[in-house]
Amino acid sequence: MEEKMFEAFKTLLSEQKRLLIQQANQTVSRESNGAQGQLADYADIATLESDRTFHLRLRDRERKLVQKIDQALERIEDGTFGICERCGEDIGTERLKARPVTTFCINCKTQLEEEEIE
Rank of each mutant, 00 (worst) to 15 (best):
L65G: 02
F9R: 02
V28A: 07
E31S: 06
Q111P: 00
N33D: 11
L56F: 10
C108I: 06
I69R: 00
A98G: 09
T110D: 08
L12A: 15
Q71T: 06
F104M: 05
C108N: 04
T103L: 03
L96K: 13
E7W: 01
E114N: 11
E89G: 13
E49N: 13
I45A: 04
E113D: 15
R63W: 03
R57C: 03
Q71W: 01
T11N: 13
R75D: 12
G37Y: 11
S29E: 09
R61K: 10
L48G: 01
Q67A: 15
R95Y: 05
E118K: 08
I21N: 04
K64Y: 04
L56P: 00
D70V: 09
A24G: 13
L73V: 08
R18E: 15
L39W: 05
D51K: 14
S50N: 12
T27V: 15
F6Y: 12
A40H: 07
Q23N: 09
K97P: 04
M5R: 04
P100V: 07
E15M: 07
N25E: 10
K10C: 04
L65T: 14
E77A: 15
R63C: 00
D90I: 11
A35N: 08
S29K: 02
Y42S: 05
L20A: 12
V28G: 01
F104L: 14
F54L: 13
C84D: 11
R30E: 06
Q22D: 13
E94F: 09
